[in-house]
Write a protein that binds this DNA or RNA. Structure first.
Lengths: 204, 204
DNA sequence: TATTTAATTTAACAATTATCTAATTAGTTA
DNA sequence: TAACTAATTAGATAATTGTTAAATTAAATA
């Protein structure tokens, strides 16, 4: 049955230790003992979790002599719009001390300007929502910069804000969450720190 | 912490009763007792699950007199590429007895032909992978029709097959799975029945 | 063959969770 | 106010699951 498979997939991702395993594997393959050490658990625990991750096709294994190396299964390649893949593939920068200043080259700035020019009308409203991820992120970031960091917004306020750009507030509000520009808790919306935003500069 | 939220989200979807709640709600709002009856559990159990789904922003509630109506939260709008949303939003047709024959209008067939013309070269290979979902589905379906129903393929075989169309076999193989053209178990790939395929006819 | 190394299995335990029944709360209506 | 209805809470139970220590397997090497 289809349902069981879906449940199994979510169960596989419904445990902090397993998610942390995936985050570690993002940087390359690791063997069982290394994982055990990094996660402060025993090798037996790693075996246990690896079994579940393997069943959900989230990891692969490779044997070299006595050692088994685990790695991410390419099923798990970054999907635009999957918060899970997003967290895992992005987590690297976070762990490595200070935030890298996202320096933007002249060429990138040119791209940005041209995208904004083609999607934002003279009255400041969106002509359309870009379908291409990179362009969409440029536009979303531009919108979100108009919001106050640390300020809590009601859903209605966010809707009104978005409607000054485009009538389809539901879609855009969802994109804000999906690409980590904002988070929502109990119906209240708030800006994320820019380090969490999905960066268009890193694309294509 | 970011990790906890992600785990909570997957936990929310890691239970068959909760998934079935979402599937039921796809057709419209329902109150607690109705849900309890449809799922053959007690109202108390519904309350229990509703609490978790609400915490993950998957459902909303509306009160009318004594009755509380549950509905899908629009956070949960169909995302291209989410197997979960896919199952839930598609499940309707499945439950309702026989498969509806996907009749294709003349106009749709025209669209299809034109898409195939622009993306498939004269030697049968892909010029590029369409970025737009509908076009992508048309092309994927065309490829997948070349595979044998019921036949089990090794990953290597699938890779070879895809490479006769395009060098990026990893991406395309993943798309096959994601859009339910194929399923994978223990590294073996097999065609899904066409009723499960994501239909381009229903889009846009 | 004996030793070493890495991973897995087994058995046990604690924590979490899905479910129920029974009691309670919140809101409506007579 | 009392009676009714729908949902929630509380408490109990059974099943599942994360973790560990100890025993076992598998492979490599001396």
């Amino acid at each position: 049955m289809q349902l069981e498979k879906l449940v199994a997939y979510h169960k596989a991702l419904a445990d902090p230790t397993r998610i942390r395993m995936l985050i570690l594997l993002r940087e390359g393959e690791l063997n069982g003992q290394a994982l055990a050490q990094r996660l402060s658990v025993t090798p037996a625990t790693i075996t246990h979790h690896a079994t579940k991750l393997r069943a959900a096709s989230l990891i692969r294994e490779r044997r070299d002599k006595n050692t088994i190396y685990f790695s991410l299964d390419d099923y798990f390649i970054r999907t635009s719009g999957s918060a899970t893949a997003d967290l895992i593939y992005r987590h690297g920068a976070e762990g490595v001390s200070a935030e890298v200043d996202p320096t933007i080259t002249e060429q990138q700035e040119k791209t940005r300007a041209s995208v904004l020019k083609s999607f934002i009308a003279s009255d400041g409203r969106l002509k359309s929502i870009p379908a291409q991820l990179k362009k969409k992120l440029i536009v979303l970031e531009e919108m979100v910069k108009r919001l106050e960091p640390g300020c809590k917004y009601e859903e209605k306020e966010i809707n009104e804000f978005i409607k000054t750009f485009h009538e389809d507030f539901a879609t855009l509000r969802r994109e804000f969450i999906m690409h980590q520009y904002m988070f929502r808790e109990d119906g209240i919306y708030e800006l994320n720190p820019p380090e969490l935003w999905q960066r268009w500069e890193t694309l294509k």
